[in-house]
């Protein structure tokens, strides 16, 4: 191993490890606190909020309660995140194919419009968006979140995918054309397999942004039964008398799905990030 790290002092690593661990411990503190707080009832909590208590007196019913409370939120959020990112990617791939492969009449105009919309800060949109959804009778419905979620990701996705598809070898498409593939078949058989990594990364980004969103759900959803995770947690926090144990358990359960998903796709995600970063 002959690299720059050998050049540094031999015994300096322990200092680095120490500092890194300081960072890491403080950063992971919330996780620990959630865990240890989740098994206490309010009396325990008031006595000693931040230090763990003996396992004998752990109140597992907090977890049962939190689970029952949070599970519908999780299913709703899963529903919204999966459908909106799937729709977003599907439509983006089709549009990116259109712009990347052919320059039809009006293509350039449409593409400039797309690019212009990328610069549009969407902060001001939420107010008219709310009224629009009201007119479309989409308020209080998860579908509103799915549709808006699919729409807001489009521009970025189409931009990235278009650049990627332009770099795919043209004669591959032509061979498929001669073989008799329709445009959709070309997308399915050429674009998707060859763009798998970037589609994966974009899907994850879309999924995450939908999962963590709470602003739009907050103003759109009214029925408790259709709450997504974000709104559910907000209302949990807003209750007057806080059942800390249950809340902590709820927070932890709310974190579980992402942890599970990431355990399965972590290697892909880190590799995708690094690849993108090095190129940029």
């Amino acid at each position: 191993m002959n690299d720059h790290r050998q050049l540094a002092g031999q015994d300096r690593d322990w200092a680095k490890h120490l500092i890194i661990w300081c960072f890491v411990v403080i950063e992971l503190l919330p996780l620990y606190l959630m865990l240890q707080g989740s098994v206490k009832d309010n009396a325990d909590f008031l006595r000693s909020p931040w230090l763990p208590i003996v396992p004998r007196s752990w109140h597992w019913e907090n977890w049962a309660f939190a689970f029952r409370l949070v599970l519908p939120y999780i299913t709703n959020t899963l529903f919204v995140a999966v459908f909106s990112s799937a729709a977003s990617l599907a439509f983006s791939i089709m549009a990116a194919y259109f712009f990347a492969r052919y320059q039809m009449p009006f293509s350039r105009m449409l593409w400039s419009a797309f690019l212009a919309l990328m610069l549009l800060p969407s902060v001001a949109n939420i107010v008219p968006l709310f009224v629009l959804l009201k007119h479309l009778s989409l308020l209080n419905s998860l579908w509103a979140l799915i549709i808006v979620g699919a729409a807001s990701g489009q521009i970025f996705n189409v931009y990235v995918l278009r650049n990627f598809i332009e770099d795919l070898p043209r004669d591959l498409f032509e061979a498929a054309e001669i073989d008799g593939a329709t445009h959709l078949q070309q997308i399915v058989n050429i674009v998707i397999p060859m763009s798998a990594p970037i589609i994966g990364t974009l899907s994850i980004l879309a999924f995450l942004s939908q999962w963590n969103d709470f602003l739009l759900p907050l103003i759109v959803l009214r029925d408790r039964s259709s709450f997504t995770l974000g709104v559910g947690l907000i209302y949990l926090d807003g209750e007057y008398v806080k059942q800390w144990g249950q809340i902590m358990a709820a927070y932890f359960i709310a974190s579980l799905p992402l942890i599970v998903i990431f355990l399965f796709s972590m290697r892909l995600f880190v590799r995708g990030l690094s690849a993108g970063a090095v190129k940029g």
């Binding site: 919309l117 549009l120 001001a124 949109n125 107010v127 008219p128 699919a150 807001s152 489009q154």
Partner: peptide, 11 residues
């Protein structure tokens, strides 16, 4: 359609 209705139109 999506972008036009839910991004451009509100703007």
């Amino acid at each position: 359609l999506l972008v036009g209705t839910f991004v451009l139109l509100p703007a």
